[in-house]
């Protein structure tokens, strides 16, 4: 397997970063709510929001990373992701969450909950054409 391609996260997770929703509305990253993602997917076309449930969190084979195991969408597909522990995910009804909220706070000043098995994260996929 290939190692994760980057050890630095983009600055859009930095507290105060300006995010443009698909409606055109601008919000700060820390102010985003579940509905902002849902609404954006609805109006963007071609993208759909999936519910991705965390089923396992393990140490990665790559130093400094964790491996997250998700089951994704209605089909309950299994997907693994190697990410740095400070990587934030948006959990339904809870908001930003990471495996290491303290590191996320240190690097991005973004307040986070601790990501746990059973959390349901927002992810996106391509909308299938019927």
């Amino acid at each position: 397997p290939q190692p994760p391609h980057s050890t630095t996260l983009p600055s859009h997770f930095m507290k105060g970063a300006i995010i443009q929703l698909a409606t055109g509305e601008l919000k700060r990253v820390e102010d985003l709510q579940t509905q902002d993602f849902v609404r954006s997917a609805e109006v963007s076309g071609g993208l759909k929001i999936d519910s991705s449930t965390v089923v396992d969190i393990q140490e990665s084979q790559w130093p400094g990373f964790v491996t997250l195991h998700f089951v994704v969408g209605e089909q309950q597909s299994k997907v693994c992701l190697d990410v740095p522990p400070e990587h934030p995910f948006f959990v339904y009804g809870q908001g930003w969450s990471s495996c290491s909220p303290s590191q996320t706070a240190q690097l991005f000043a973004l307040p986070c909950h601790r990501l746990q098995v059973g959390d349901v994260c927002i992810s996106i996929s391509l909308q299938s054409i019927s």
């Binding site: 995010i19 443009q20 601008l26 985003l32 994704v72 948006f90």
Partner: peptide, 25 residues
């Protein structure tokens, strides 16, 4: 003179992972 600061604006979909299920063979 104060130069206007450019502010980066990021698209919403850059914040959430793209988790495409692997296609069955």
């Amino acid at each position: 003179n104060v130069e206007p600061r450019s502010v980066a604006v990021f698209p919403w979909h850059s914040l959430v992972p793209f988790l495409a299920p692997s296609q069955p063979d």
